[in-house]
């Protein structure tokens, strides 16, 4: 019966996808993309990937959509009709798709519990993680400990994106609050934002620190945290928000997150372990794992939150 939901969602995704291909209004496409993302997030929930769902919703339906809209607002909405017939692309796509479908023919069936993918490494993660790491959420333990190095890479990637956006769009600080006139009319928004700002932040921190037990972790928390500040900026103006968190502070925070992560790794090295070997961080290996995961998740959260803000401010402040 989950399969039914799964299939319907896939069907909806397909419709959305085709609509995106056909639609000419870029803003419309953007909204459809947001819906696409939302639908795939639901699909992830159906497929038991709750952490992924959380992230996809926060990213796809959230920040990515906003960035796309900002870009359209900074450029233009209408898509020109392509000049040449897209015959070659169609051919390439067909060939690629055909190849992939050909490849699926020897794949284990969808959901087959005996598939090699589930039997080997993953199986032992599920068995050993509670003992070795003591964290119920296996995704977190794999993410932060077994494959903690990937996550360091991930933080670096997002940091790179921030550096890129800073380089490309810069970060213009608003001296005077020029949107003041517009803001004054947003009574509803302002009051609601006032109520929600602390709630969102608290919720973000909750997600940050409960990644061990449920879906969540540094990345999701970072995005939510940033969302709080985005709401603040929406309600009270960019200038006010920028005064609350100055750009230099954001830079420092973005860097600090990566550095915290790396420092945990180096510290475990100094304590006689391998890079990112958390168990040496405390006397008890499990406690060490906990501490390590806590710290690196903190690093991830800090970097992600500040990077999201850097990117968002970068796009939004581009308007003269």
């Amino acid at each position: 019966m989950e399969n039914l939901i799964n299939d319907v969602l896939l069907g909806l995704l397909m419709i959305t996808g085709f609509a995106i291909v056909r639609m000419k209004s870029l803003l419309g496409v953007t909204m459809l993309t947001s819906i696409y993302s939302l639908l795939s997030a639901s699909l992830f929930v159906v497929l038991d990937a709750v952490d992924v769902a959380l992230t996809e919703a926060a990213i796809g339906a959230g920040i990515a959509t906003v960035l796309m809209v900002a870009t359209v607002a900074l450029t233009t909405d209408e898509e020109k009709v392509p000049r040449h017939t897209p015959l070659l692309p169609l051919l390439v796509v067909m060939a690629t798709g055909a190849a992939l479908i050909y490849g699926t023919l020897d794949m284990p069936h969808h959901g087959d519990p005996l598939a090699p993918a589930h039997r080997y490494v993953a199986d032992s993660y599920l068995h050993d993680s509670p003992v070795e790491i003591g964290v119920p959420n296996v995704v977190t333990s794999v993410l932060a400990s077994y494959r903690g190095y990937d996550t360091l890479g991930e933080v670096t990637v997002i940091f790179t994106a921030a550096a890129g956006v800073l380089a490309l769009l810069g970060y213009r600080t608003r001296g005077r609050n020029i949107e003041a006139a517009g803001i004054r009319k947003q009574v509803v928004l302002r009051v609601i934002a006032k109520l929600f700002f602390p709630l969102i932040l608290l919720f973000a921190l909750y997600v940050q620190f409960h990644g061990d037990y449920g879906p969540g972790g540094g990345f999701q928390a970072g995005v939510i945290f940033a969302t709080g500040f985005i709401l603040y900026a929406l309600a009270f103006g960019l200038g006010t928000a920028q005064r609350l968190i100055p750009s230099q502070l954001l830079r420092i925070l973005a860097a600090a997150g990566v550095l915290i992560y790396a420092a945990v790794g180096l510290e475990s090295m100094l304590l006689g372990g391998k890079f990112l070997e958390y168990r040496v961080l405390a006397d008890d290996p499990i406690a060490g794992q906990h501490l390590g995961i806590l710290l690196i998740e903190l690093g991830v959260g800090i970097t992600v939150a500040s990077v999201m803000l850097i990117i968002y401010y970068g796009f939004v402040s581009r308007r003269h």
Binding site: A49, V52, Y125, V138, V157, F219
Partner: peptide, 14 residues
């Protein structure tokens, strides 16, 4: 369900 692809995709989403 298999946690490993989830981890990979978390990274990939970012």
């Amino acid at each position: 369900s298999n946690p490993l692809p989830h981890v990979l995709i978390l990274t990939a989403i970012v």
